[in-house]
């Protein structure tokens, strides 16, 4: 459903700071895939997401989503079919507006001049109650009052309100405390499961990279160097993964945030 064909991106081309962030990267994602992505700092994981979401246009290559060529499509148009969560819980919602108003924008119902209806509110309430965080009783409070975990959970509801064709999770639990991170991760798996979403997730946690999803991809220097799925992925341990990374890239995996256990 998502076809990435040999995309490349060089930042600051022609200068001393030129950096090849994506190097003829190709990836074919099947409908319903849940792919976890791991790699060292600067491997190009987030750049790959930015390229898919349309934050910049790639220098070469082609991206198609569900048969539609989105290579040159602007980010806000791609957002119709691509939901996204960032590491920073503050990025996904507007702090000065109420929970209800944030959800209304994410829902995107109605005409430009339509207002939030009673039916919308009931729907928001039932969606929020699934989070089990009591947010359904605080719908008129500004989002800025919520904790990081609550905001990330809200962002999850917003990003998947109209189930997107593709969900991009960029270390979306990394800034949360362990208990909250676990809860948000559980909510994520449930949401992905219920809506059978196709999902790409960047993580620094090697164990959850293996526990979650059906396929694991490793990146290094703007390329995919390892792609494990199906039989090959069963029973694999973190140590196996590190060993395979070393074989494929010729160096040990280093990531200052990586959790090896």
């Amino acid at each position: 459903m998502l076809e990435i064909k040999e995309i490349s991106k060089t930042f600051n081309p022609g200068t001393a700071n030129a950096k090849i962030a994506l190097d003829k990267l190709s990836l074919s994602v099947k409908d319903g895939d849940f792919i976890t992505i791991i790699g060292a700092n600067g491997a190009g994981k987030s750049t790959l997401f930015n390229a898919i979401a349309g934050d910049f246009t790639t220098d070469e290559g082609k991206i198609t989503l569900d048969g539609e060529d989105i290579t040159l499509m602007p980010a806000h148009k791609r957002a119709k079919s691509i939901g996204r969560l960032f590491q920073d819980p503050m990025r996904g919602s507007a702090p000065g507006m109420s929970i209800e108003e944030n959800l209304a924008l994410a829902a995107g119902n109605g005409e430009w001049l339509s207002r939030i209806s009673k039916r919308d509110k009931d729907e928001f309430r039932s969606r929020l109650s699934l989070l089990d965080m009591g947010l359904e009783d605080r719908m008129n409070q500004p989002v800025g009052l919520l904790s990081g975990g609550q905001r990330q959970a809200l962002t999850l509801v917003m990003a998947t309100y109209n189930p997107p064709k593709l969900l991009l999770l960029d270390e979306h639990t990394a800034a949360l405390d362990p208990a909250t991170a676990e809860k948000v991760l559980k909510l994520t798996s449930e949401t992905v499961g219920v809506n059978s979403l196709t999902c790409l997730m960047i993580t620094h946690n090697m164990q959850s990279a293996l526990d979650l999803g059906n396929r694991t991809v490793m990146m290094d220097a703007g390329k995919i160097i390892l792609d494990i799925e199906g039989e090959n992925r069963k029973g694999i341990t973190v140590n196996d993964l590190l060993e395979q990374f070393k074989l494929a890239s010729g160096k040990a995996l280093t990531n200052d945030r990586m959790l090896l256990s």
Binding site: R91, P95, M158
Partner: peptide, 13 residues
């Protein structure tokens, strides 16, 4: 929302 968080506006298409 544009004055509050333009990223969020973009992700709302």
């Amino acid at each position: 929302a544009t004055g509050n968080n333009p990223d969020m506006v973009r992700s709302s298409s």
